[in-house]
Design a protein around this nucleic acid. Sequence first.
DNA 1: GGAAGTACGCACAAATTTGTTAGTATGTAG
DNA 2: CTACATACTAACAAATTTGTGCGTACTTCC
Lengths: 130, 130
Amino acid sequence: MTGETAQRLLEGWQLGNVLAADCPSRAILNHLTNRWGTLVMVALATGPHRFAELRRKVGGVSERMLSQTLKDLEADGFVLRTAHPVVPPHVDYELTGLGREAAAYVVALVGWIEGALPEIMAGKMRVAAE
Amino acid sequence: MTGETAQRLLEGWQLGNVLAADCPSRAILNHLTNRWGTLVMVALATGPHRFAELRRKVGGVSERMLSQTLKDLEADGFVLRTAHPVVPPHVDYELTGLGREAAAYVVALVGWIEGALPEIMAGKMRVAAE
DNA sequence: GGAAGTACGCACAAATTTGTTAGTATGTAG
DNA sequence: CTACATACTAACAAATTTGTGCGTACTTCC
């Protein structure tokens, strides 16, 4: 994705609504970009996962936060929850079609950050050295 | 960006580090995706802005949060701050090269959300009607 | 001569997010 | 027979984020 693409998007039809405090897209954006939402999307981008599996994969989430995050993402239609009625419980989480689209953007951002990390850190060093 | 691209990114070299709780990319990700960071990046994507101008553009930010957000983004090397030594103060904020790259991803995500909003909301309606 | 605009920093308060602990039902391994 | 794993939830506590109001130094507009 290039700068020009961003520019075009920005000047398009209904864009810029998020900048309005009461646009519903704010909530969606929030679910996708809050502390755990992003990481859960990244984790799920590789395929379905069970609850405990996700918890181990996403370093630092508590069970509470994970289930809350999953619930939000499910309510937005990004995640599909499938509970098998067995004991002990067995629940699978996977991205929906919409979720896979969203995840692509999130993964792209995260991927870019990780790639740019050396440059970003180098910049910080340079500033710190002044 | 397609699902396959995301998939490829995900399986690449150093990817997946964000999932580790102590990866420094977590902090960067946070600055780019916390409540105001995303919106400020979107706002700045169209060009340089002054402080008060940004405040008006990004609906709902307080002065405190805006200056804090800008400080974080500046420290990461995404935003360039230029203060003209006049009175009353005049300060310009604009994206750096790195910032423009990052903004492209953020704008893409936000743009997608706004475009997908009808579908997302429709999904919520459907669930609520059950 | 008073008000407003500028780009903030600071102290304190409120709101929101996050974590912690305990508890559920039951099969399976030791 | 006991502990552990599973996928959670509720209640409560702690931490973090966010907001509010005030002050600043000076100029321009009424």
